[in-house]
Write a protein that binds this DNA or RNA. Structure first.
Length: 575
RNA sequence: CGGCGAGUAGCGCAGCCUGGUAGCGCACCUGCCUUGGGAGCAGGGGGUCGCACGUUCGAAUCGUGUCUCGCCGACCA
């Protein structure tokens, strides 16, 4: 491709509304342009990267036995009413009417459509297992789209749906997809983790998220430094501690702690470590049910664990007024000792190992010291309620310690079970002629988000550094002062042609621009390899070869430069 | 949906408080010059100041309403 005939509108200045680096760089590199909030044009360069990723995904999905198809982005309301999603989904589902006043929506996902297709066509156990996938545009009317392609409203997604005769077979389908995802993200050259995840509103029995490690990631994940355990913090388990014993119990003493509400202030005021305090938090399901959660002072409540333990659909922290009504105690001085009956108290497992701790006295400006479980109060239940923190012991192996990362969710695999097949009555006849419900799984990859995540992970102060497999071009050939030096232009053109004849995708920078401009542009758009053809080197029959990722610039004879590029591109594709 | 902030040339911004000819840098066009890391000089084009209503002799500037965008929060396969 000749740069002069292509379209790469780069910009020097960083657009003010782009916050994360991948968004800034995709805008600056001329890969995307915003059309409306969370809705983007994919310009030629951006599209090339997206297509590269799509093809990797296709190859691996096909290799894993999935079958490509394409479903509509506009979907009839009837299907969503049948699954219950029409009511459940809320405003994120963009709804509208056609000319005949019929209700439709833009598909935010395709479980309904694919299950409808399957229930019509798949009637026998002989037709399974089967797994359909598509690469398609989804629309979710996010409350707050942000970070460019990372969280758009319209976005490209690969989604796959497996259909099996029973849950053992479904487990196999799940495993195939899991392995395919590992290959996909490895081929993309990404530093990622597959983590256990909460199944959230989509339901189902188990799921893994594929997280690209990046400081700008919206999710916190943890992984063991010695075994393979890794999980989203939402889900990550804490290793149970053995109960403390043999410590002599101190008396329970009510102590004045004037105006000390935050647990760190209380600890500082009383001169004890935060680890010796217990904080009480009140949560509600928003429907009038409240619960008091007890945690060690320095620990953080994991609302999802509490929500799941309570069997609630929703959870939030109670407001100050609600707390006063539910517990009869003022915020900042809450505690379980002598608490209002009817408010259930759940203690985090860490409290098992604690003795003689500080805790709120349910009176303004008062805390207890020397509190002990069993003697002074008894929680209704002990549960794992807190977030894992760095350094925690691994729940799965003996020696491991947990590490904490930020991650960008680029893929998600779910065991769906029979949620949709039951709702939509997708059944088949087994070998005995008996009707059975199909067992499903669903598997998504955010295509645009993965490209953005790659940039998030691979960039420097000059711009993007694409790994070869998803780079829009493999190599650029930069002709220095081509308008003035026909010799340079001619040689550069030869190199361009030679590389293309070997299947290398080349961006030939034949523009009549100053060298500095060309170098800056080529760095910005992140082409992995660069050959510079200049008059000086050419006098010796040599050109420069440099990797965008760094390393030394090499001055090589033309033939050697060409074959080196050919070799590197070939190697990158044979992972 | 709550709190905060912003809408002035393609991009980044000043001007607004204190009403009176709409400005700067980058980008763009022409010419000269320059050519190994976003050069220089000269000239030039481009804006119903988000929209509507109001106050005023006169509104980018003051008031009211509205729309859009962003940040924080809640929310989120």
């Amino acid at each position: 491709m000749r740069y002069s005939r292509y379209f790469i509108p780069t910009v020097k200045e960083t657009p003010s509304d782009a916050e994360v680096v991948s968004h800034q760089l995709m805008l600056r590199a001329g890969m995307i342009r915003k059309l409306a909030a969370g809705i983007y044009n994919y310009l030629p360069l951006g599209l090339r990267s997206i297509r590269k990723l799509e093809n990797i995904v296709r190859e691996e999905m096909n290799r894993a036995g999935a079958i490509e198809m394409l479903m509509p982005s506009v979907q009839p309301a009837e299907l969503w009413q049948e699954s219950g999603g029409w009511q459940f989904y809320g405003k994120e589902l963009l709804r509208f009417k056609d000319r005949k006043e019929g209700d439709f929506c833009m598909g935010p996902t395709h479980e309904e459509v694919v299950t409808d297709m399957v229930r019509r066509e798949v009637k026998s156990y002989r037709q399974m297992p089967v797994n359909f996938y598509q690469i398609q545009t989804k629309f979710r009317d996010e409350i707050r789209p942000r970070f460019g392609l990372m969280r758009g409203r319209e976005f490209i997604m690969k989604d796959a749906y497996s259909f099996d005769v029973d849950s053992a077979a479904a487990d196999l389908s799940y495993e195939k997809m899991f392995n395919a995802y590992m290959r996909i993200f490895e081929r993309c050259g990404l530093n990622f983790r597959a983590v256990e995840a909460d199944t959230g509103s989509i339901g189902g029995s188990s799921s893994h998220e594929f997280m690209v490690l990046a400081d700008s990631g919206e999710d916190a994940i943890v992984s063991c430094d010695s075994c393979r355990y890794a999980a989203n913090v939402e889900k990550a388990e804490v290793r149970p501690v053995s109960s403390g014993s043999g410590i002599e119990q101190q008396p329970l003493i009510k102590t004045a702690t004037p105006d000390k509400k935050a647990i760190s202030d209380v600890a500082a005021f009383l001169g004890c470590p935060v680890e010796s305090t217990v904080k009480a938090l009140v949560c509600t399901n928003g429907e009038g049910v409240f619960v008091m959660a007890l945690l060690r002072g320095d620990h953080e409540l994991n609302e999802i664990k509490l929500k799941n333990a309570m069997g609630w659909d929703e959870i939030r922290m109670a407001t100050d007024e609600e707390i006063l009504v539910a517990s009869g105690a003022p915020v900042g001085f809450l505690g379980p000792v002598g608490i209002k009956t009817g408010l259930s108290v759940i203690a985090d497992l860490a409290l098992n190992a604690m003795a003689n701790f500080v805790i709120g006295a349910n009176e303004t400006d008062q805390h207890y010291t020397g509190a002990n479980i069993g003697r002074d109060f008894t929680p209704d239940r002990f549960l794992d309620l807190r977030n894992v923190v760095a350094g925690d012991a691994c729940p799965r192996c003996e020696s491991g310690r947990m590490e904490v990362w930020r991650g960008i969710e680029v893929g998600h695999v779910f065991k769906l079970g029979t949620k949709y097949s039951t709702a939509l009555n997708a059944t088949y006849l087994d070998a005995d002629g008996k009707e059975q419900v199909i067992v499903m799984g669903c598997y998504g990859i955010g295509i645009g988000r993965t490209v953005a995540a790659s940039i998030e992970q691979n960039h420097d102060e000059n711009g993007i550094i694409f790994p070869i497999p998803i780079a829009p071009f493999h190599c650029s050939v930069v002709a220095l002062n081509p308008a003035k030096d026909p010799q340079v232009l001619a040689k550069a053109e030869d190199i361009y042609r030679a590389l293309e004849s070997f299947g290398v995708e080349v961006l030939f920078d034949d523009r009549d621009e100053r060298p500095g401009v060309k170098f800056k542009d080529n760095d910005l758009i992140g082409i992995p390899l660069r050959i510079v053809v200049g008059a000086k080197g050419l006098a010796e029959g040599k050109v420069e070869l440099k990797k965008r990722s760094g390393g030394e610039m090499e001055l090589l004879p033309i033939d050697e430069a060409v074959s080196a590029v050919r070799r590197m591109v070939h190697e990158a594709h044979s992972i």
